[in-house]
């Protein structure tokens, strides 16, 4: 591997050899002769590889010639292949944003294919110890009591949540670590939308974390997909769908999830 652009630099400073162009032309002119010689003389593995390459080149060329000949005939001879993108006249000149539609139809497609229902993108997660999850809060006048815990992970608390009175509240969910929305990606389309979280469905670590709404990697959350405009076959609006968290929110400060379709 050349280090730095010294060849280019040299050419810039001193120019090329005087016979550079001539040599180049001659080499190109002899190319056909070289190929003919190789085709006759190459043996074994090299010969096989050469023949394979030559064959694919010839096929390509023939196709090109054929296409060129067809283009000279006026108009297409047979009907255009259907690509499933036909639109009525009133939608022809419009820039339709059909992402949501594409999501909807791909979901339907998926259902038709009867994909395994309970498979999730992240089947296994790292275990989280209680020590990592909870921080012990010392209480009492002389800070001698230690029955209070504070969750060190991001949480979802739900709409209209009010904290318990101080002396009742055993587990604190810090307000700075609460999340309301998640970046949800559709796995097949690769579109990412910022959607409100509706609920925490299951935290694989423990059912207690599910109840507390802890958001860790692998947690299944329900997100509000109503602004995507998905519709069921019966014409009803779909608005809640499940998604699995793919990042560790306490490291990134945001929740990234992938939609389960």
């Amino acid at each position: 591997m050349p280090q730095n652009e010294y060849i280019e630099q040299h050419i810039k400073q001193h120019g090329r050899r005087l016979d550079h162009d001539e040599k180049k032309r001659k080499k190109a002119a002899r190319e056909g002769h070289r190929i003919a010689k190789d085709a006759q003389n190459l043996k074994g593995w090299k010969g096989k590889m050469f023949a394979k390459k030559r064959y694919s080149e010839k096929v390509e060329m023939k196709k090109k010639i054929k296409a060129h000949e067809e283009s000279k005939i006026k108009g297409p001879s047979k009907p255009k292949e259907d690509d499933g993108e036909a639109l009525p006249t009133y939608l022809l000149d419009r820039q339709t944003t059909n992402t949501a539609k594409a999501i909807s139809s791909s979901i339907k497609q998926k259902r038709l294919e009867k994909a395994s229902k309970f498979q999730v993108p992240l089947p296994k997660v790292r275990g989280i110890t209680e020590e990592e999850m909870f921080k012990v809060i010392k209480t009492g006048k002389s800070k001698s009591k230690s029955w209070k815990r504070m969750i060190t992970k991001h949480t979802f608390v739900g709409e209209g949540f009010t904290r318990n009175p101080v002396k009742m509240e055993r587990i604190i969910r810090p307000s700075a670590l609460r999340q309301k929305k998640a970046n949800v990606t559709h796995p097949e389309l690769g579109v990412t939308v910022f959607l409100p979280i509706l609920a925490v469905k299951k935290n694989p670590q423990s059912p207690m974390y599910t109840k507390l709404g802890v958001l860790t990697k692998g947690t299944i959350i329900e997100v509000n997909v109503s602004d995507l405009g998905l519709v069921t076959a019966g014409g009803k609006v779909v608005w809640g769908k499940y998604a699995q968290i793919t990042n560790e929110p306490d490291r990134d400060g945001c929740v990234n999830a992938v939609l389960l379709v």
Partner: peptide, 10 residues
């Protein structure tokens, strides 16, 4: 009714 070579719009 076959004959058109592209979408039938109207």
């Amino acid at each position: 009714l076959k004959g058109h070579t592209n979408w039938v719009l109207c």
